[in-house]
Nucleic acid binder design. Structure first.
Lengths: 192, 192
DNA sequence: GATATCCTTCCTACTAGTTGGTAGGTGACG
DNA sequence: CGTCACCTACCAACTAGTAGGAAGGATATC
């Protein structure tokens, strides 16, 4: 039970990589068992239903995201640089096929067909990310490092939407550099 | 054969509504035959494979989009008002469950699991839309109606990404007004 | 004008493969 | 001895897709 990487965690990781490719309905238990050395039925031992699996997957993703942002806060103090680091993180992810999209951004598009429990997690991620962005923008504005038009919250929503849209465009064009081409002007625009 | 609304067209319409809910893998031939009065197998007569069906669906969608933009150009002359009309169109769509998302924006997220033929259509839509936006922005800039930082093309990519991201956020929050809350500041920002 | 031929549209009936999920058992380990 | 992790062996429902036939209209032939 004290594996450094438990089987349940392996399943979660694998499912995350699979879900990033094409969403909730694009992968099956069989896909997971083909990658992780485990039988189809054994996955149900750890996650009774697909809904459970994906809910936990998103919950874990949110925890990691929160931890990542907390570390970012620790390592970088300047608000503008924090935003740059956040965007830079995603820029490096886009090039990597296994992490080339935000799990929640992808699932958000499929919300009408998602189990309610998953929807709640996705929504919570959007709120949490927006709140963090708003706090950074607010601080940057107070410090005179950024110039905002409108409320910090409104700017945060716009910032988040643009980042998610940039992921979509990068996928559509099949060109990772698109992400940077969109987000760089976005950052420059709010820089004082 | 000369039905005002042919069966093939009914199938395409139905598939579009279904695909808007959750993408390529979220609907089946059975879902279509439940809505349109036709047997599962008969759908294959009109569209041999699912890939064919969705490719044609996206092609038809693109034609309508092009026609819509052409009409917009005819009815509205001011570039800024054209952008407002474009965004306004989507704002009214978001509230309607059957058309609450851009088909191509949704499919873009699933590109790694999509048939190649569909990917090409989706990519072409992104290019076409971006080109149109760039031409409007260019003209607005030349007329002094808009103030751009950077090239018209870069601004167009940013604009398009934000609109798509706003659709995602509206779905994530389950709140149609989010779309307007994001796109209004976007428009105000480029207005001279 | 009747009839034969063809094409289109849609049907019933079917298939092989996949889907998420269940029942019940085995071995290891505390 | 019980619990946990995992197994084999299932399952019903669903997936896209096929085979072959029936009905109807258009067209060509006599």
């Amino acid at each position: 039970m004290e594996h450094p990487q438990s089987k349940a965690d392996e399943i979660l990781r694998c499912a995350r990589t699979l879900i990033i490719r094409g969403g909730y309905n694009s992968f099956s238990y069989a896909d997971i068992s083909n990658v992780v050395g485990i039988r189809n039925a054994s996955i149900h031992h750890h996650f009774p239903s697909k809904s459970d699996l994906v809910r936990k997957l998103v919950a874990q993703y949110r925890e990691e995201a929160a931890a990542g942002l907390a570390e970012l806060e620790r390592n970088v103090s300047d608000p503008l640089e924090q935003l740059r680091a956040y965007v830079g993180y995603w820029e490096s992810c886009i090039a990597d096929a296994t992490h080339s999209f935000c799990v929640c951004a992808l699932l958000a598009g499929e919300i009408p067909v998602l189990p309610e429990a998953v929807v709640l997690e996705v929504r919570a991620h959007f709120r949490g990310l927006c709140d963090w962005l708003a706090s950074v923008l607010e601080r940057g504005d107070a410090q005179g490092r950024l110039t905002l038009t409108g409320t910090a919250h409104a700017n945060a929503e716009l910032f988040m939407a643009t980042v998610h849209g940039a992921m979509l465009s990068a996928r559509a064009y099949g060109d990772a550099s698109t992400f940077g081409a969109i987000t760089r002007p976005l950052l420059n625009r709010i820089a004082a």
